[in-house]
Design a protein around this nucleic acid. Structure first.
Lengths: 156, 156
DNA sequence: TTAATAATGGGATAACATGGGATTGTATGG
DNA sequence: CCATACAATCCCATGTTATCCCATTATTAA
């Protein structure tokens, strides 16, 4: 499970260390398929990247298999995620190198922020993430009374 | 699993490098049947090619075997895929040579784009692919809220 | 303090995509 | 049956890019 938020350096070669906690999450989970690395793709929700272990893609594959072949949703998702994604292998130090087009998409330079979100994670420009975080937390505060009454402990 | 999108050169001899990731996907998967290459066929959905490893054909075969011999769907698919497909072996450098009729069908000249879609991939004229990609991603963005809920929450 | 885990920098090495020539194979006609 | 022409395949050479490997520093744990 991907938890916590970590900011690491993006070096001149385009490499960045994946947080050690994320790496161990991936290696624990990847007994099924032994790709030692991550998969990332550009988000549909904004200028940041989304990612996870290869098993995330396999789960996704399985859910696509349930849809009809001609289902437009199915091909939309295949293009948006499978076709737009990249597999990035870890080097000996647990780093991956982010492709240049991904740099541009997510406005990455110097530092990148990994945001753990359970099954998957996000990769942000730290400054943009801070703005996003502020606005989302504001929203959460405003609506927290709704959360209290509407469920008993299962806040997501 | 076939992931990401890669554009490579089509040389004067009609050869093109299959992306290294695709090749390793095929060789990992082909323990069942050791054909070192790909299988391609003209798509039924437009002017592009579809393809995969030989194991993909075996999966098709298996699902066709579930249908009755006289099932019209069965023979239609046999004609559309098995009869229309070609096996293309890798050369020493991981290239295949695309037959001329396939060039014409998919409007290939100079550069070709490999699009990973999980179990299979597509081969496009880069320009045509870009148009298709734009329209599909637009659709995906518009319906992404639906997509989120339809995929057990966490996979977008 | 010492050892162990992480993150990071940089040089050496291997992999990949690509072009061109040489060789083999295959179909066709004599 | 052999000879020829054409095309397909193999093989090697190249530049570029990515990856491997080692060294250094910082942080944490024993």
């Amino acid at each position: 499970m991907f938890l916590s938020t970590v900011t690491n350096n993006l070096d001149a070669k385009g490499r960045v260390s994946v947080p050690a906690d994320f790496r161990s999450t991936i290696s624990n989970d990847s007994k099924r398929s032994p790709f030692d690395g991550i998969v990332i793709w550009p988000s549909l929700d904004g200028n940041f990247l989304e990612g996870g272990g290869i098993s995330l893609m396999e789960d996704f594959q399985a859910s696509l298999d349930l849809k009809e072949h001609y289902d437009p949703e199915r091909s939309a998702l295949q293009y948006a995620i499978f076709a737009s994604s990249r597999q990035l292998a870890f080097d000996g130090g647990g780093r991956v190198s982010l492709p240049k087009d991904m740099h541009e998409f997510a406005n990455l330079n110097g530092k990148v922020t990994f945001v753990g979100l359970g099954r998957r994670f996000e990769i942000w420009n730290p400054k943009l993430f801070e703005e996003r975080r502020e606005s989302i937390l504001t929203l959460a505060r405003e609506s927290r009374h709704i959360l209290k009454t509407s469920n008993s402990g299962d806040v997501r």
